[in-house]
Computed example of a mutant assay.
Amino acid sequence: MNIEISKIANLPTSYGDFKIQSFKQNDKEHLAIFTYTLPSIPTVRIHSECLTGDVFKSLKCDCGEQLDFALKQIQKDGGMVIYLRQEGRGIGLFNKVNAYSLQDLGHDTIKANELLGFKQDYRDYKIVDEILKHFNIKKIKLMTNNPLKLTSLKHTKIVKRVPIIINSCEYNYEYLETKKEKMGHLL
Rank of each mutant, 00 (worst) to 15 (best):
F135M: 11
S58I: 09
Y171L: 13
V97W: 01
F18T: 13
Y15D: 05
R89G: 07
M143V: 10
Y15T: 08
Q103V: 13
I82F: 03
G16A: 11
F23Y: 01
P12L: 05
P12E: 05
T37M: 11
D17G: 13
T37H: 06
K76G: 01
S168I: 14
K133E: 15
T43W: 00
G79M: 03
F23L: 05
Q25R: 13
A32V: 10
G16N: 07
V128P: 03
L71F: 01
H47Y: 03
L150N: 00
I82R: 03
K96L: 11
L132V: 09
I166R: 00
I41M: 04
S168M: 08
N146Y: 03
K76W: 02
V44R: 04
L31T: 11
Y171D: 14
P12N: 11
L93E: 07
I5M: 00
E29G: 02
I158C: 04
Q103N: 10
S22A: 15
K111C: 02
K76S: 14
D17F: 05
K96D: 12
T151M: 05
R45I: 11
Y173H: 13
Y100A: 12
G16D: 07
G78M: 08
P39F: 00
L38T: 11
N26W: 02
G92C: 04
I131G: 04
Q103W: 01
G106W: 02
I165V: 15
Y122A: 12
Q66E: 10
H30Y: 02
H134Q: 06
Y175W: 01
T13H: 02
H185L: 10
K141G: 08
E49G: 04
V159T: 15
P42D: 07
I166K: 05
L11S: 02
N10P: 04
K76A: 10
R45T: 12
H30P: 04
S58K: 01
K24P: 07
T37I: 13
I74D: 02
L38A: 12
F94E: 14
F118V: 12
D54T: 09
M183Y: 04
G184V: 13
G106M: 03
V128K: 05
L176W: 02
N146A: 12
K24G: 10
Q86E: 13
M143W: 02
T156C: 08
L132M: 07
K139Y: 10
I3E: 00
S58T: 11
I137F: 02
H107L: 15
F18M: 05
H134I: 08
Y36L: 14
K126H: 14
K133P: 01
Q21Y: 01
T37L: 11
K111I: 12
R161L: 09
L150Y: 02
S6E: 06
H30W: 00
A99W: 00
Y36K: 15
S152M: 11
